[in-house]
Computed example of a mutant assay.
Amino acid sequence: MACRTACQLLQRRLASSAASVRLSAAEVRGRRSAVFSREQARQRSLYPRTEKIEVTLQIPGLQGTLLVMNKGLSTPHSCARHLTEWYVTSSALALVDGKPWSLHQPLTQSCSLSLLTFKDTDPLLVNQAYWRSCAALLGQVLQDAFKEDFSVELLSLPEVLVTSGAFCCDVVLDPQLDAWNPSEESLRSLTRGAQQLIHRDLPWEPLEVAPPVALEVFSHSRCKQKEVEEKSAQSPKGTVILYRCGDHVLLSGGPLVARTGLCSQYEVTAIHPLGEGKWGLHRRAQGLSLPLQQQAHHTVWRKLRSRAEKLVEVPTGSTNEAISDTLTLPSAPEQTPPHTPQQ
């Protein structure tokens, strides 16, 4: 209770400070990344001496292989680098003692380790992380797409079924854009932005933090401060997970894949208005993607894209499912939205 009260006091103080100083989008990103770096350095300083841990591989063909790694510094990605290049480039997620674990999250004790790829017999966890990561990438693109004159507030990354046909990112744009309907060229421009981030092959760096740190990171976003409170209240440890990609910091409800370069075919398919909400006009941006290890023929991709244009309804408490090879692909008519304002 005391921690919650302290967080509420900090939240009000940060909100008051944010209201008095209007920063540009680039300045906000820079401040968020700086707080992330400071906390990351603090956590690493908790391991001043090099302590060794034993990591037992649970990988076909390497079952029981023992790696001696550095506590608090080594990650599953570090372990993959002791194997072959295939594990470095193909691994998307890890299991540490049976629990989903980001490839770049440090290991803090001796454990068992599995490296997961999109070619595994049961790709459920990898598909969940991939869909979540594609939505995170879409949110980053939206925040970078508009001129400094227009504010962009990311609301959430809804957890939707992979079989729903599209990943989603809810957003509120500047009130000046309330009448804006994105054209096909606007969607293509957003797609190009995503492809540029994919080409840079940026890692998603995870960081588990206490609520006061997360509130400081998102001191210029009342919406994100509210989300920090909700996620920390739902967490058994009372913490939240932040991820950084380049200088973009986000909240995530679960692990992301290792890097943007694991995405291959990627397209922003639609931005739907959802109506007025607490923060303004809510919109749902949607997209479609396949990972590097899976490709679709252009005729199949067109069918998938048509389906991904339709508004995805987000049921409360939904969870992801594995990609199915027997999806029914309903067709959707091509739409030509009105012209977009200059971005």
Score class of each variant (00 low, 15 high):
S324D: 14
L137F: 09
L256P: 02
D325W: 09
R32M: 08
G317D: 01
S183C: 01
Q63P: 10
L173K: 00
R44S: 07
L125Y: 03
V160P: 10
L242W: 04
T75H: 10
A26Y: 15
W101Y: 01
R307Q: 14
L197H: 09
S151N: 02
L137P: 01
H82M: 08
Q265M: 05
M69N: 05
G254T: 00
A135Y: 08
A179R: 04
C7K: 15
E208H: 11
A34I: 12
K303Y: 07
E313T: 07
V300Y: 06
S232A: 11
A18K: 06
E334M: 14
P291R: 08
A332G: 05
T75D: 05
F150R: 03
C169F: 15
R32K: 03
L292Y: 05
V141I: 06
L23R: 10
V209I: 04
C168I: 04
R81S: 11
H220T: 15
F218K: 02
R81T: 14
P273N: 12
L116N: 06
I323T: 07
R302K: 11
F36A: 13
P60M: 00
K224E: 10
K224I: 03
C7G: 07
E27L: 07
T5C: 10
E208S: 10
R4W: 13
L93T: 08
H199D: 15
P273G: 10
S45Y: 02
V312H: 09
C79T: 12
L57H: 04
C3L: 08
A136N: 04
G98L: 02
V55W: 03
T5A: 11
G64S: 02
G61E: 02
C3D: 13
P48C: 08
R302I: 12
E27P: 06
A41M: 12
E313P: 00
A308D: 02
T299F: 15
A92K: 07
Q335W: 09
R29V: 13
V55L: 00
L93D: 04
V88S: 13
S17T: 05
L138P: 02
C223G: 05
R4H: 05
P100N: 06
L242C: 04
Q8G: 15
T260S: 04
A15L: 14
D144L: 06
A285S: 11
P315R: 00
R305G: 05
R259D: 01
L138Q: 02
L157P: 13
P291I: 04
R259I: 06
S112T: 08
R38V: 13
S133M: 01
L250V: 09
A6C: 11
L67T: 01
P158D: 02
V172L: 00
A129I: 03
Y266I: 03
E148V: 05
R222E: 06
H104F: 05
G139W: 02
L157G: 09
K99P: 10
R12L: 06
Q128M: 14
L250H: 14
V217P: 02
E276H: 15
L202P: 04
D97Q: 02
W131S: 11
V160H: 09
L10D: 13
A166P: 01
K237R: 14
C223L: 07
A270N: 12
L155E: 05
F146H: 10
